[in-house]
Every structure is written in C-alpha cells, then in structure tokens.
Nucleic acid binder design. Sequence first.
RNA 1: GCGGAUGUAGCUCAGCUGGUUAGAGCGUCGGUUUGUGGUACCGAAUGUCGCCGGUUCGAAUCCGGUCAUCCGCCCCA
Length: 430
Amino acid sequence: MDLKPTKPLSGFIELLPAQQRCFDECARRMQEVLNYAGYSRLDLPAIERAEVLTDKDNWDEIETQIFLFQKGDTKMGLRYDGTVGLARFVAGHMNDLAFPFRVYQFARNYRGERPQRGRYREFWQMDIDVLGIQNLSTNYDAEIVATLAQMYESISDIVGSVKVKVGNRRFWNAMFEYLNLTPEQARAVFILVDKKDKISDFVEGLVDTVGADKANEINSVFTNGYRSFLNKTMNLDAAINEMDHFMELLRVMGVKNAEIDVSIMRGHAYYTGIVFEFFSVDYPELPAVGGGGRYEDLVSKFSKTRIVGVGASIGVSRLLVALMEMGKINLSKWERPIDVAILVMGDDNLQYALTVESALRNAKIPSVAYLDADKKFKNQIEYADKIMAKYSMIIGEDEAKNNVVALKDMATGDQQTVSVSDAIKLIQGR
RNA sequence: GCGGAUGUAGCUCAGCUGGUUAGAGCGUCGGUUUGUGGUACCGAAUGUCGCCGGUUCGAAUCCGGUCAUCCGCCCCA
C-alpha cells in the first residue's frame, strides 16, 4: 500500500509541542496587553462569501492569492486578513457597538500565493483596530502604535526588540500635488518610494518618471529631510505637522525606537494617512513583523455610514515561526511541561498510583502516570527522562502497602521514601 | 506567472568519472537476567534512490520531460 505524505502542504505550519507552548505563551502575553488597553476580541469565521472578499477595485491584486472555492451555488473563500471581516461585522452590528470601538482579532489567515521564507499560506495574525463613526482623532493612531510597541515589549525576552518606522501617505499626496504630477506619475513614484530600500536605481527611476528637476526634489526628501518642505503648501505643512505631532505623542507614551521614515508606504490601497511598520532590531533579515495605518471609508461597501479607523496587524507566525526555524528562540524552558512522572511497577499497583496522580494534580503539580504498568521499569524511567520530568515517583508493592512513594530527583539521582503529602511539599519547595 | 537549486530510510545526508545483494549518523524497536534513566555495547526493522521515458549489456549515477520542495522575483503581511 502506498503511504500518504506526512508533510503538510507547502506554506502551512506545524509546531512541535515545545514550540507550540512558546507560541501560546507569546499569544497570551500580547492579548493580556490588549485586554488592559481596552480591546475586545472578535472571532470571526475563516470563510467569507467571495463577494465580500473581492471587489472590482482590488480584484487583480487579490484574485491570484486568495483561496476560493464553491459549494453548490455559493462562492466562498478563506479570509486573507482580518480587515474585510471586521468591516462586514461592524457594518452589521453598528447598533450594538460603542464607538470609538477598540477591537482585536487573533486568527489564522490564508493566502494562496507561492510561499517563501517568512511568508506562509496559512498564518496567525493579530489584527488590532480602532474604529470611529464619521471622525476619529489621529491621536488614536499614536495610541495604537504605543499598544503594539507594548505587545512586542511583552515578548521581547523571547523574540528580541523591535523598532517602528513611521510614514505618511498624506505627505506624499501633498508632494504630488505640489509637484503637479499626473495621476500616472504619482502612482509610479509611489511604487518607487515603496520599493526604495530594495532597488538600486531609485533616482534613475524617478528621473525616468518625472524628469530630472522633480526627481531631485523628491529625492531631497531623503537627503535633506521631509521638514525641508515646510512652508511650501498648506497640505504639505499639515502632513509634516501631523508627523511631528505623532512622534511627540509616541514619545509621551514611552515608545522607544520610533523614527520617521517617509519611504514607508505599505502597499494596501486603503491607507490614507499615517502608516507604520515594525521591524526586528535583533534580526534585521526578517521582513516587517507588523504594521498598519489610518484608513477612511473601510466599510463603504457594506454601509452608507462613514466609518474611519486606524488598524494594525502583527504577523505572529512571521515573527515566531521564522525565528524558530532559524533556531533563534531558546525553547528549553518550554520543553518541560511535566514535573512528575509516576512510574508504576505492575498492574497490582495501578490503583494506588492513580490516587497519587490525583493528589498531585489537585495540588496543581503537572504529573503523568505511566499507565502501561506492566512495562519494564527501564522503559518507564527512560520515558521520565525523555519528558524531562523533574521528579520520578516510583510506586511498587512496598510503596503501595505502606502508603508512601519513592521520590527521585531526576537531576541528582537522589531518592527518598516519603508520604504523598510530604512528597508534594518537597516538590513545591516548601 | 518567471528564474535558480534540490529530490536516496521517520529525520539529516554520503554514494567519485554508470558495474552485481544501496550506505552512515540520529531516531525507533529489542537485548546486555526481569525496581533505576541521561553514557556505553550488541542486534533488528524500514528504501520500487520523486515519477515517466530515453541512451546502455548494465542507470541512484548520463540525457529529456514531468511533479514536488526550497530560495529569489512579481505581489503582498
């Protein structure tokens, strides 16, 4: 008989138990930060109607990378991020929500594209949004960045520290207006700036697109700084002041490692103002590990009410799984879930062993009994060793008869015969 | 969709210019007298050498195709 493959599909992730415990702990800490920051969790369906996931505006971008399928006459697909579902949800439950609405999702998302390092077809993402009706102060933009920074900080002992780079779409729109670019030129420059760090012929590209003079001015944003465009137009002033105010708020909220980098654009069509991306300081080879920005009219395809907001996401898989695959996360503290292995010398002693196991578990000591009680002792203690139990508790005829256990410290090899209650005290260090 | 690399045991890989029954380490299972592990020793199981075709007396090895995986590009998080 042909054996079927044991590997998951390309781009899908499986974690080993210790890795999963580490992942869960990181997720727990980040969600704890969100709870204190007043965010409610939303757990939406992974599958949405195809018409919800796609529309004519972004069909070309999305159609090639989305998992689409059909049941009967219903076309559906797997969500590729949290934003679309959130927009649908908010539009449908506006009466039940209080705005500004702070909300997060921690969920698997799916992209059908070809995988590469740090990019998966199924991945966990933490989506964080603040939504307002009609208006929402850009102060929330700063607050959400501060919240993200705290989330990263909460796991920095595991994944290292991050820095955040801040850009502004509004600044570039004002620039394009100031330079009188055609929409086609603006779009081309936008893409060039977005890719600036990746390409070597940035300036040449600008010259080809807008001519030498304007290319020079655009490039001077990076050589002389964005503030050199103050006092040119009202919109430029507004955008520049917005960035400076934003950075001032980050400073007040204690965000470290924040800097303006106007080349941060983010490809998404829906961002309209401040945008930001988080990068690993300790592992600069990783792509952005999170980011987001301000958007307008998110909900317009579901509702006539104008909803604006600021959203961000943390690529949890990208960050954690990539580091695990690189061997950069010390998993030793996640590899020891069990404190006590109860070794049972023969079926006759099983019942007593089970009462001991219950006593340990009631005392909140993670413990497992080796229930193949007729297996050789050697196999049992090898198992205790393999799961890295701190203690073995050996239960044979004598122990069962006298209501005691032989407690063995697996690191030192020391062994003593004590009552169950004394064993619990010893294990708990009292 | 495009380009590059790689497909041999559960895992990591070795097999030089084609030559009989295909190897190592790790892991798994068993054993070194059946209440003492991490070390050591002995033994065992497991492969149609990714798939199809071609060249050849003979192919894991050479050639073509195909599929898959990884890396990169496009695009994106």
